[in-house]
Design a protein around this nucleic acid. Sequence first.
RNA 1: GGGCGAGUGGCGAAAUCUGGUAGACGCGCAGGAUUCAGGUUCCUGUGUCCGCAAGGACGUGGGGGUUCAAGUCCCCCCUCGCCCACCA
Length: 817
Amino acid sequence: MARRYEPAVFEPKWEEIWAAEGLYRASEDPDDPRPRFYALDMFSYPSGDLHMGHAEAFSGGDAIARYEAMRGHNVLHPIGWDAFGLPAENAAIKRGIHPKEWTYTNIEQQRRSFRRLGMSFDWQRQLNTCDPGYYRWTQWLFLQLFERGLAYRKAASTNWCPNDQTVLANEQVVQGRCERCGAVVQRRELTQWFFKITDYAQRLLDDMDELTDWPERVVTMQRNWIGRSEGAEVTFEIAETGEPVTVFTTRPDTLWGVTFFVFSVEHPDVERLATLAGTWDQVRPLVEKVRSTPLTIREEADTKEGVALGVHVVNPVNGERLPVYVAPYVLMEYGTGAVMAVPAHDQRDFEFARQHGLPVRVVVQPDGADPVDPETMTAALPHEGVMVHSAPFDGERSPASIAKVTTWLEREGRGRAAVTFRLRDWLISRQRYWGAPIPIIHCPADGLVPVPEDQLPVILPEDVDFRPGGESPLARHPAFLNVDCPVCGGPATRETDTMDTFVDSSWYYYRYCSPDDEQRAFDPQSVARWMPVGQYTGGAEHAILHLLYSRFFTKVLYDLGLVPFTEPFPRLMNQGQVIYDGARMSKSKGNMVAPMPIVERWGADTVRLTMLFAGPFEDDIDWKLIAGDPDRRPAVHAWLGRVFNVVDDAAGASGDEPEGLRRATARAVKGVTGDMERFRFNTAISKLQVLTNEMRAALDGRGGAREAAATLALLLAPFAPFAAEELWREVLGNPESVHLQSWPTFDPSLVVQDTVTLVIQVNGKVRDRVEVPADIDEASALALARASENARRAVGEGRVVKEIVRAPKLVNLVAQG
RNA sequence: GGGCGAGUGGCGAAAUCUGGUAGACGCGCAGGAUUCAGGUUCCUGUGUCCGCAAGGACGUGGGGGUUCAAGUCCCCCCUCGCCCACCA
């Protein structure tokens, strides 16, 4: 009588037993001989119950954590909540409840769901970024940066919604409109807090060597985001005033082709120079237009608009007097906010020149092309070739000449080699309620005063009208706002902005190492024992922001002497997205599929296996394609049913294990282990299915399969922890949890093939296959090939002119005629 | 416009790192068995075409190349996806 597969019965049972047994607690015992392994999943944003993305990501992360534990590691596998943030406020406003209530309700729901899914988390280390015991240390870290000049205030352009009366993140601006209310977004200059990540730009690039197991595309995205450009700074001179004005260029070899000069609309000298030249009336409308256009719209504009400033610059290499323009295509945020324009060799400059009737001068003659008439050019030329009209550099190869020209500029005192980064400082202040307050006091006498450490945390008050109203909601809370200055004791006010939630998430993985420490952010000794992280798992949508910020934080902590390493996550794995019918799941499309109802109906193991078996972990999963009809029994559920039957039969069978099955078991152990090392969960599971089929065949042949059954339960444990446990303890009768067992090993002699298939080809086409001993010699293999009827027929009248022998796998007869 | 990645059966995918039997495993489908019944379970078959079969031809987006041999390596092109996008 076969045992029925009833996950609805045994999954909740094991959930309780595992919790009672404390199965997944990481050991801090320094005498624990096991090597440590930190299996980290990106923590969860509690915006509701778990969604499919969670199920996918955590199924993979949990498989790794369980596998590493069975491999003999003392595993740290924690979970926490990225609990601050705007969605909590928006949802709370919509429902008329407090963001805290909404957040904690969701956390409790997600916590239950994670447990129901069988995630092997060490729940004693659970952390929550909106807990004062956590954000106290977020504030402490802010102060560490502040004291070293890495946190500072400056005026910046921001997206402003006139309806909601708040600043918006770029992500919240959709086609120039507020994503919440649809109002056209404005731009506003506001004084904001920044972290000086640009100080670390070069190190963030250099240390990429240490990211040994990151997806290449994530590294590339970060490299592009940092955007290092090598070139030169060249100093021009305003002809009318004699003042210097510097530009950055990657192509100093084209300096002789400069025919005009452009300032960014936001350049601080524009108004003064325009007033001086009497052009302010013409320039001003453009300046005001750009200032009122949201940042996201401006980036999409492609017009070559601009106006003449009425002043001129002198080109330092040839003394030419060139007109100066103001144009939005020059960005204030990059380089110096001013550019030298080389229309012959830069497409943007070329289009601007055509629009405004400016001259074009070719200074690099492309190889193999006839000299071009600048009048008839339709696009900028590539600048690879020979320099012309560039005395004293005529005839030099370009771009090889860049270094030479730069050296010359330095000698002549007209410029110098320079490096520019695209990376900008990290704007961390938010005029929002639901975040960690910035621990700064504004004193009329003492300026910006850090809150003394012994007064941390600066508690986020709960009795706040948190609806957006044109300023931070905390500014409307007098008891929070008004304080005595810690330095002079006089009346002062608190900073009312809160921190970006990415600050919270930039250090949470440190806190896991000593989550209850009330004396410090983390215990450096515990961190030194657990970190760097053994494997980090999470979504590719964090390729830049979270992962870059965390790398930055780690370098700051290293400089503070708090951690002995410079990269927190040397190994990173991104899961793919779960989509539906080719499209992203979303409420507005009405194509959301939630994991927990499927868990209810088919079990947690089915959800986990469906995710992991669907394809490579990093590939997207189209739920409609892999799950099909939601009422149909999932394929992996049916397989688990077969597993239960076959293991149950094996437990009752008394025969000897056939040699073929022993070999199949060894092959499975070898194959699954290799797949686990490369996170090939889909092929690992397929190998377990092969073993299941082999066991069935052996049992039908009246053989035993007890060894295979035990091995199957062990190999199944990382993927389907409930089923593996039920099989291990209940069906096979073992007293101790399968999740405390060692990963199986195999006898290498069992995976050695005695016979292999010798493939016989004629002119590269397979004509015959023969089973041969694995140690067959070349002469015998060749003799078999020559003797093959099929091969002979294929050779026909032809003559064999060459024989390629790769014993024992292949012989290729090359025939002619 | 730039960068990165991917195109293999009706479908999800193997094999690609290391050139050597293309399509493992699973879904679906077809036929059969069991069942009062089944959206159950089990068995068999399943790349396309020709053939009763043996066997043969074709086949990894398209074109070219290297090689005894290419899904795999090289060059060009097409399509799709993702990211960045006036970065001087």
